[in-house]
């Protein structure tokens, strides 16, 4: 399993648009990808779950990927977060 943490810098946090884009990105991979904020965790391929985390600017999220293509998945997600959030 691969993981990394990221602090959100986007003013609006994970609102609908980036949540949608994140789902699209995560869906490209076989690996099981999770997004965690504090106690709460969500499947990065499920938009309601991601939005339900209500991650805002300054919040730390932890991304994990588990599966055959976990290395590629985590690299792509990290790139995505830096560019969009």
């Amino acid at each position: 399993m691969k993981e990394f943490s990221y602090v959100i810098t986007d003013e609006l946090g994970i609102h609908a648009r980036p949540a949608g884009l994140l789902v699209k990105e995560a869906a490209k991979f076989q690996a099981d990808i999770k997004i965690k904020k504090g106690e709460k965790a969500a499947d990065a391929k499920r938009i309601f779950g991601i939005m339900g985390l209500a991650a805002k600017k300054g919040d730390e999220i932890i991304m994990t990927a588990d599966g055959a293509d976990e290395a590629e998945a985590i690299a792509a997600i990290e790139e995505f977060l830096k560019a969009n959030l």
Binding site: R17, G20, K45, R46, I47, G49
Partner: peptide
């Protein structure tokens, strides 16, 4: 940018939860 909402709506409809 504004049209993205309809893509998001599709994702909501296909959301597994």
């Amino acid at each position: 940018e504004n049209a993205m909402i309809f893509e998001i709506h599709q994702m909501m409809l296909e959301d597994l939860d």
